[in-house]
Design a protein around this nucleic acid. Structure first.
Lengths: 144, 144
DNA sequence: TTGCGTGCAAAGGTTTTGCATGGCA
DNA sequence: TGCCATGCAAAACCTTTGCACGCAA
């Protein structure tokens, strides 16, 4: 968590507000920077990096690292109900790149199982399940 | 898949043989390079990178990217029984960085659930579950 | 006034690429 | 001979850091 108190800055607000308009969407720093510039505000890349990492520490934003030499993705966490955090998994299709949100009974049961049986407290907001989505499975031979 | 035919090279064999001696273990390029040097063979970093990526393409090795500016991890895939692929999940502790292998009934059931109910064919070899391990949970306050 | 935020430039880390050389078939 | 592998150095990539300046409290 942050220890910098309630210091508010224009840029912090601008970035957070923008991220909140696209909850659940995964954006790179470059995309976020471009979106902000398009909204008429000039801002440095460094600031975007710093503010986003701040929000990650504060638990407002999730960060996903896919590949080396590829930009990381940031996503605003909509904290509607706390239980939602346990019930929502992210699935990324390795073929088309689509990101799918899943939510069901079995998923929260599985999270509970990891905790009670394996003593592992899952962070579903940081975890990405890789695999192949329905559409792509039709067009691809998968031996698994 | 590779299109380079059956071209064999000394280094390819050396790297593959070494990786096969540590199946399921996650190693960085630096660690692999050091292990090979210790075995008396001089080899360039570039070659290690190239050969490993080749093996990833060929489906012999898995590559895990944890954080930007952090080395990726490579792991030899032991293809003993195909079902094993469905039963093994990787859990990474966000606090101490430890990587844990999990294997149980519920895990393969969950993989099946994703497939039958959500039409999502999970690739457990590429997926990393993030969270907090037992030891670290004792020393850390987690509000989740 | 004090402390944090900002932005540029530079540095940091890992990974990839260019190119000349060497090895396998 | 022809194609691929190798290795060094250089480049590429994303990200972080140093430092001087500016803004908020």
């Amino acid at each position: 968590m942050s220890t910098r108190g309630n210091y508010k800055s224009k840029n912090h607000e601008l970035i957070l507000e923008y991220m909140q308009t696209v909850p659940g969407k995964h954006l790179t720093v470059e995309e976020i920077h471009a979106a902000l510039e398009q909204r008429g505000c000039t801002i440095g890349f460094t600031t975007v990096y710093r503010q986003l990492n701040r929000m990650v520490d504060d638990g407002l934003i999730n960060k996903y690292t896919i590949e080396p030499n590829m930009p990381a993705c940031y996503e605003y966490i909509r904290i509607a109900r706390p239980e939602e955090l346990l019930n929502c998994y992210h699935c990324k299709c390795e073929v088309c790149g689509r990101l799918i949100h899943l939510q069901c009974e079995e998923i929260s049961e599985f999270t509970e199982h990891l905790k009670s049986e394996h003593k592992f407290t899952l962070n579903p907001m940081r975890t990405v399940l890789y695999g192949v989505c329905e559409d792509c499975a039709k067009h691809t031979k998968i031996v698994r």
